[in-house]
Amino acid sequence: MKKIVVDGLKYKYPLSEALALQDISFEIEEGEFIGIIGKNSVGKSTLCQALVGLVPHFYKGAYGGKVLVDGLEVRNHSIADISRKVGMVFQNPFTQVTGSKMTVYEEIAFGLENSGLPREEMRQRIDEVLRLMRIEHVKDHSPFDLSGGQMQRMAIASIMAMKPDILVLDEPTSQLDPAGSEEVFQAIQDFSQQGITVIMAEHKMEKIAQYCNRVLLLHEGRLVDFDTAEKIFSREDLKDYGVTAPVYTRVCRALGVKKQGCDGYPVTLEDAELALRRSFA
């Protein structure tokens, strides 16, 4: 089932001359885990915001084309309606924090309160996401006393608690150490395996390669390619888009070792190991 359909989307921020998004079309199936890559300021965050309705409802500006999220046309529905289907984790957790709550626990409750959930259900969900994101020990702290990494975990927890059908994340692990970011990726993958559709803008190419079903490459507001990680990271012209392939792909490309049964180079540690062992043998 098509969970997201974007058809000829064009968008220009108010006071800006250039289009931030130019004629973008793609479809995403239910339960897919999609990575959005590209250099900074090519429209990754704008595209994320177009999926949750902040573009155009919050930012205004000129808008053309269509975005359908689980059948709802984003343009014709309020952010409140859309928020019941799609949750978004902001790039900077500091901007996502409401500022109106005294503790991490209450902060996570914010969205749930606003959607009128019964108290018991709220408690259950909050406890679950606190555990999942491993921030139980700071649940009574003020959101502003957290470290960058803890705040980012709280930001993700607040959205996961809403149990959206579709989860949009904008560089959700930028503040985390490698072990923490692996943990968060695994938690998101668990979500995705429960059938939730996940869309993530990210610069950590090794992670994109490891976790995403398909990768969407953006450049100057246009969609360049939307394919498997092997296909995208094996493109000869990847550098022109300001993207570096995972280190495993770069090693295999330099040695001319392709992935077995596929025309591209390996993109993960495991695949690179397999391919290299075969070529050394």
């Binding site: 150490d177 490698p178 072990a179 090794e206 995972p246 280190v247 495993y248 770069r250 090693v251 330099a254 040695l255 540690l269 690179a272 190991e273 290299l276 062992r277 050394f280």
Partner: peptide, 27 residues
């Protein structure tokens, strides 16, 4: 809880003897 760089891990897994730090060294 720190992992060596990806390229270092790959080199170790495929049995290269020295500790490798860059793609160039690997090649």
């Amino acid at each position: 809880n720190v992992e060596p760089p990806g390229v270092t891990q790959l080199a170790e897994r495929v049995g290269l003897k020295n500790t490798i730090l860059t793609v160039e060294e690997f090649v």
